[in-house]
Simulated scan of single mutants.
Amino acid sequence: MKQRNTARLLTGRIYVGLVLFFLYAPILVMALMSFNASEFYAFPLSFTLGWYAKLANNAEIVSSAWRSLWIAIATTIIAASLGTAASLALFRYEFPGKRILQALLFPPIAIPWLIVGTAMLIFFFWVGIGRGTPAVILGHVALALPYVIVVVSARLQTFDRQLEEAARSLGASQWEVTRYVTLPWIASGVVAGALFAFAVSFDQFVVSYFLAEPGDATLPVIIYTAIRKGFTPEINAISTIIIVISMAVMLGASRFFKFGGER
């Protein structure tokens, strides 16, 4: 029995190791190539920071990165605010069509973004918004909102309603109950939903490609265009920077808000 458990444990570790290798090996190779002096990835590896220096002087990539960043921040703030408010409303109140509304949150996640992007382009021209940064932000918010609502609603399922009732019985207003009782409890869910919203927006290619005006492309669109014209290690450099910053933010947030729970 002990040998069987040992074999299962070893098999499990090997499986997890293979999964992690499959996920992170391409990222590690890309990061290494961003420090390789050869434009054609020749070996042995010759260390250089030249591609990062060229990246700093590439105005198109840098401006598109900043554009993607502030659009993602705006999307995160709007989606997190609206999504949290919607989750609280769905949690606290019963109203006709509530189950249908909850079910309608999932199709935008499942529908291919190519179809969603086409539909948004037609709709925004129909209502007179057209293409541009406002349309891009609205499109990103529409895509990110379901993720926020799902994550925050899942966190609310662990919330004890009696805590709100106790606060009201002590004279707290609805706003005070939300601010001092409910929001601290669901803070980790709100942060997790906001991180999802940021990732969806910053990484979004299809909707940004359809809705952005010429000359105002986001970073994913610039990367796609650069790959079609001819790949350059500068793309490896900007991708490595984004991955390092993203992982640092994710690890910091998960540690601070204890996404994995306390041991």
Results as ranks from 00 to 15, higher is better:
residue 197 A to E: 05
residue 237 A to F: 05
residue 135 A to Y: 02
residue 125 F to H: 12
residue 163 L to V: 11
residue 189 G to P: 12
residue 167 A to H: 08
residue 170 L to D: 02
residue 220 P to T: 14
residue 234 E to W: 00
residue 30 M to P: 07
residue 237 A to P: 04
residue 180 Y to T: 14
residue 143 L to K: 08
residue 79 A to K: 00
residue 134 P to Y: 06
residue 133 T to Q: 09
residue 260 G to P: 11
residue 164 E to H: 08
residue 25 A to R: 00
residue 112 P to W: 09
residue 244 V to F: 07
residue 142 A to T: 15
residue 19 V to N: 13
residue 105 L to V: 10
residue 161 R to S: 14
residue 30 M to I: 11
residue 229 K to G: 12
residue 24 Y to G: 07
residue 171 G to L: 09
residue 257 F to S: 06
residue 184 P to D: 00
residue 100 I to Y: 07
residue 11 T to S: 15
residue 199 A to H: 02
residue 174 Q to M: 06
residue 50 G to Y: 13
residue 213 E to G: 13
residue 5 N to Y: 13
residue 192 A to I: 05
residue 257 F to E: 04
residue 74 A to W: 07
residue 147 Y to L: 10
residue 122 I to G: 01
residue 253 A to E: 10
residue 208 S to H: 02
residue 55 L to T: 01
residue 141 V to R: 01
residue 230 G to D: 04
residue 103 A to Q: 00
residue 191 V to L: 07
residue 27 I to R: 06
residue 56 A to I: 05
residue 163 L to F: 06
residue 19 V to S: 13
residue 126 W to E: 15
residue 152 V to E: 01
residue 60 E to G: 11
residue 139 G to Q: 11
residue 259 F to C: 13
residue 154 A to E: 11
residue 165 E to D: 14
residue 202 F to H: 02
residue 174 Q to E: 13
residue 41 Y to E: 01
residue 4 R to F: 03
residue 237 A to S: 08
residue 115 I to G: 04
residue 66 W to E: 11
residue 172 A to H: 10
residue 105 L to T: 09
residue 120 M to Y: 13
residue 94 E to R: 14
residue 219 L to P: 08
residue 189 G to D: 11
residue 135 A to C: 05
residue 93 Y to S: 08
residue 116 V to M: 05
residue 215 G to K: 02
residue 37 A to N: 12
residue 237 A to E: 05
residue 223 I to A: 11
residue 6 T to Y: 06
residue 41 Y to F: 10
residue 63 S to Q: 10
residue 44 P to C: 07
residue 229 K to L: 15
residue 221 V to T: 09
residue 214 P to Y: 10
residue 193 G to T: 10
residue 2 K to G: 14
residue 140 H to W: 14
residue 242 I to M: 08
residue 25 A to W: 00
residue 49 L to M: 10
residue 190 V to R: 00
residue 25 A to Y: 06
residue 179 R to P: 00
residue 225 T to D: 15
residue 176 E to S: 09
residue 27 I to T: 04
residue 245 I to C: 00
residue 207 V to R: 10
residue 54 K to A: 06
residue 237 A to G: 03
residue 131 R to M: 07
residue 226 A to D: 12
residue 73 I to T: 09
residue 34 S to Q: 06
residue 168 R to A: 09
residue 151 V to P: 02
residue 56 A to P: 01
residue 109 I to R: 07
residue 212 A to Q: 07
residue 199 A to C: 01
residue 220 P to E: 12
residue 168 R to I: 10
residue 39 E to Q: 07
residue 40 F to K: 03
residue 223 I to V: 15
residue 218 T to W: 10
residue 261 G to R: 06
residue 68 S to M: 06
residue 142 A to E: 14
residue 233 P to S: 01
residue 40 F to I: 08
residue 54 K to C: 03
residue 135 A to K: 02
residue 223 I to W: 06
residue 45 L to H: 05
residue 156 L to D: 01
residue 149 I to T: 05
residue 242 I to S: 08
residue 57 N to W: 02
residue 80 A to L: 00
residue 157 Q to S: 03
residue 32 L to V: 15
residue 215 G to F: 04
residue 96 P to Y: 12
residue 254 S to T: 15
residue 37 A to F: 11
residue 195 L to A: 12
residue 136 V to D: 01
residue 195 L to Y: 13
residue 121 L to H: 10
